[in-house]
């Protein structure tokens, strides 16, 4: 066994998996609270990357250092995307909250298409170069062939975001309200929880994480265009289902499992079958554990 090669693939998969997990969190949180698959989530990720590109371009003119640009661009992207997420919910999902479940789903697909076309019209349909905002420090040079600074940053940021989110949900008042709303919205409202506020907050958090993901990944890959949200969204959605949709640790685990699966499949078998193996795994897991790896099987309430 060639361990060197194994670890290269392992860390490649870890980066990829962290990316998926970061986006998957948004899917799984929204699903947990209002049982809606927010198909426009991938587009929010794309909007985050575009916002950061515009901000970075503007700041670059004034000669800011790369790290400052990264932080400011990420902050602006987070604010912008959070606003988008909440607006999306107010316009496209809230009026349909009591409609049959298929209606908000179609509305979500519609928003996804709308946002893509909005970016084509307002920005461009071309591929745009994204500046490398993560400087490569000297001490990472010995492992540059395995992972660069941007990959380290992706993994670290994802880990911090997930830990913070878990703590938030476990130990804060608002987190408790979120869990209550997820369990039973009507009951939570009867007990005085402002469900609208909780739902809005869910979209704020989910969209912010997607925005952070967009900035980090665009900086890592070095390019953006209007369609990047689609594939990233589909993969993250798969990760969320794999881990058990509605479950936050599930989204993280699902993302990592999917990332490793793809990386090892490419490395040891063939990248021709990368997607086939990833989705094959999904099918297998859904056959034996229909609610996902960490999902709880829901008992039908009578």
């Amino acid at each position: 066994m060639d361990w060197q090669y194994f670890w290269e693939l392992f860390f490649g998969g870890l980066t990829r998996g962290s990316i998926y997990a970061l986006i998957a969190l948004g899917y799984t949180m929204v699903y947990g609270i209002i049982e809606l698959i927010n198909f426009a989530h991938g587009e929010v990720y794309m909007l985050g990357a575009f916002t950061a590109l515009i901000v970075a371009g503007a700041l670059g003119i004034y000669g800011f250092p790369a790290v400052a640009i990264l932080i400011i661009a990420a902050a602006v992207a987070v604010i912008y995307c959070a606003a988008y997420g909440v607006t999306l919910e107010k316009i496209a999902y809230k009026p349909l909250r009591d409609a049959p479940r298929l209606s908000p789903l179609i509305s979500a697909i519609g928003m996804s298409i709308f946002l893509q076309n909005y970016v084509i019209l307002a920005q461009t349909s071309d591929f745009m170069p994204f500046p490398n905002l993560v400087p490569q420090p000297e001490f990472l040079e010995p492992i540059a062939h395995i992972m660069g600074a941007s990959e380290v940053l992706i993994i670290v940021t994802s880990a911090i975001a997930m830990a913070a989110l878990t703590l938030f949900i476990k130990y804060t008042r608002m987190g408790k309200a979120m869990r209550a709303t997820a369990q039973n919205r009507k009951m939570a409202m009867l007990l005085g929880i402002d469900a609208d506020k909780v739902i809005s907050l869910t979209f704020v958090i989910g969209s912010s994480l997607a925005a952070v993901g967009g900035v980090l990944i665009a900086s890592h890959v070095g390019q953006v265009n209007f369609a990047i949200g689609f594939i990233a969204g589909i993969k993250a959605f798969t990760a969320a289902v794999l881990g058990g949709i509605g479950s936050i640790p599930g989204a993280m685990l699902g993302g990592l499992v999917l990332g490793w699966c793809e990386s090892f499949a490419t490395g040891y078998i063939s990248s021709d079958y990368e997607d086939a193996l990833a989705f094959g795994l999904l099918v297998l897991i859904l056959i034996f554990r229909p609610s996902g790896i960490l999902g709880k099987a829901k008992t039908q309430k009578v």
């Binding site: 990829r16 369609a227 490395g267």
Partner: peptide, 20 residues
């Protein structure tokens, strides 16, 4: 001899495979 997936979020696994 490999086909890569267009639009994938990153190609580090393929790149490692080239090196290997």
């Amino acid at each position: 001899f490999e086909g890569v997936t267009p639009g994938a979020v990153d190609y580090s696994a393929v790149v490692q495979k080239i090196r290997n």
